[in-house]
Simulated scan of single mutants.
Amino acid sequence: MIRYAFRRLLLAAAVAFTVSLAAFLTLHLATDPAQAIAGENATPDVVHQIRVEYGLDRPLTTQYGAWIDDLAHGDLGESYYWHQSVGHLIAQAAPVTFKLASLALLFTIGLAIPLGALAALRPNTWLDRLALSVAVAGQAVPTFWFALMAIVAFAVKLHWFPVAGGGSLAHFVLPAFVLSMRSVPPVMRLTRAGLLEAFESDYIRTARAKGFRGSRLLTRQALRNALLPVISVLAVQLGHKLGGSIIVESVFSLPGIGRLTLDSILGGDIPTVQMLVFVFALIFVGLTFVADLINAWLDPRLRLG
């Protein structure tokens, strides 16, 4: 297990380095940071002065090395737009997004896995078709439209939840439910497919011969092996929720990382955008690493392989 974890850690470190280099080069080659700071109407002399002042006239390799060195010392850079530390901006916004993403993941697990299990227990019935219809609808409906309809139905008409803001847990229920809808279909389908495959295996036939039936067969025999690929998908979905909450946070006026990303892009704040891209990549790498370890713990074949 230790050797497996070490190999996965080396792979995660290589991916993180590659992403940091790609994020740095993409943003610096796609736009001129000095022009973004100076503004569209700035004269060439002002742009040149800013380029020299911020060290943007140095070679890209030197700038990248300085950026990595600052990261190693805990310096995430200075925002051009807000004139604050990027680390401070992310630290302010991160708790909101983590709370939103965690609640959305709970909604995903609570909806997708039971629906997938019910569909697998009753294949080719009305229950199975209903679950698959929910999956198709969840992926077909645009997030922004679903968010607006949820506000109209549950906040404006029924007055069950607040319309916007993040002052209490009630403010997060509706946006978390909306955010979870994109991840319910793949998790539900994967759970259903995994359980149907498990039900055809030899060890399930043996369990049936021993008298296991229904929910007892599902929870004590089939579910553990069927959930192995689901764990990896849930880790990726959590990363999507942390990094892809821009629309939901904008619609519900939540001051999280998604809203910070949108404002940084609109304001041309390259240091903040660059750091947010790197942070999102680290989150994906970290979650994938944790999912690999959990899968290896559940299935010894992965460790031996």
Rank of each mutant, 00 (worst) to 15 (best):
Y4F: 14
Y4W: 11
R7E: 03
A12E: 10
A12S: 15
A14I: 04
A16P: 15
A16M: 12
A16S: 13
T18K: 07
L21Q: 05
A34W: 09
G39C: 14
A42P: 04
D45S: 12
H48R: 13
G55S: 13
G55I: 03
Q63C: 14
Y64C: 12
A66P: 09
W67G: 10
D70E: 10
L71A: 09
G77M: 10
G77N: 08
G87P: 03
A91K: 09
Q92T: 04
V96W: 07
T97I: 01
K99F: 14
K99A: 12
L100H: 02
S102K: 03
L105S: 09
P114C: 07
G116C: 08
L118E: 03
A120L: 05
T125C: 01
L132A: 00
L132Y: 00
V134A: 05
A135M: 01
V141E: 00
P142S: 04
T143W: 13
F144L: 07
W145K: 03
M149Y: 11
I151Y: 15
K157G: 11
H159F: 10
F161I: 10
F161W: 15
V173R: 07
L174M: 08
L174S: 05
F177R: 02
V178D: 07
V184R: 00
V184Y: 00
M188F: 00
L196F: 05
E197K: 15
A198E: 13
A198N: 12
D202E: 06
I204M: 08
T206D: 03
A209V: 05
G211A: 07
G211P: 10
R213Q: 05
R213E: 03
R216S: 12
R216I: 07
Q221S: 13
L223E: 10
L223N: 11
R224N: 06
A226W: 15
V230I: 15
V233D: 14
V236M: 14
G239A: 13
H240F: 13
K241D: 06
K241I: 03
L242Q: 02
I246N: 02
V248P: 05
S250P: 01
S250M: 06
L260I: 06
I265T: 04
I270A: 11
F278R: 05
F280D: 07
L293W: 08
I294P: 01
D299W: 11
L302M: 07
